[in-house]
Amino acid sequence: MLSHLVAGQTLYFGDSLFYIVCFLLLMWLIKIFAWKPVTKMMQDRSDKIANDIDSAEKSRTDAANLVAKRQEALNASHAEAQTIVQTAKTNGQQQRDQIVAQAQTDVQTLKATAQKDIAQEREDALANARDDVADLSIEIASKIIQRELNADDQKALIDSYIEGLGKQHES
């Protein structure tokens, strides 16, 4: 029937069966040896590329964040350093002023004390000198008196003394 329809050629239906079997067998072999592993590999690759893109995006944002953080920290440390230097400067200024003031007051006190001491000493020395002069003059006077005082005079002195005593009684 169909066997002489086409181009006057004889068709052998056994061939049809042979080609179907051949083709299915070939398809099965290709599936086992190549199709499955290759498509799996291609899938793996596309997955990997997608993952890589994602992770690259992630690391990019991470890096950007890190840079921003670093910049911020750097700025903060600049400011901190400035405040530290400023504080140190003011502290130093303050301390210097304090020390100078302290030194001035110390000097003043020292000066005052020294002046007081000097005055005191002079006073003392003066007092001593006065005492000494008094003693000396008394000694001198007593020496002079002892030598000048003879028996008459002694008697007169005693008398005057007694007289004085009597006057004291009377009063």
Binding site: Y12, G14, D15, F18, Y19, L25, L29, I30, A34
Partner: peptide
């Protein structure tokens, strides 16, 4: 009980082996 043409069977096998060889050795 089926008639086969030798030409078709042999060339079919040749193509079968060629295709398989190409796919096998490249994979």
């Amino acid at each position: 009980g089926l008639t086969f043409s030798t030409a078709n069977v042999v060339s079919g096998l040749v193509v079968f082996l060629l295709v398989f060889a190409v796919v096998f050795f490249t994979s």
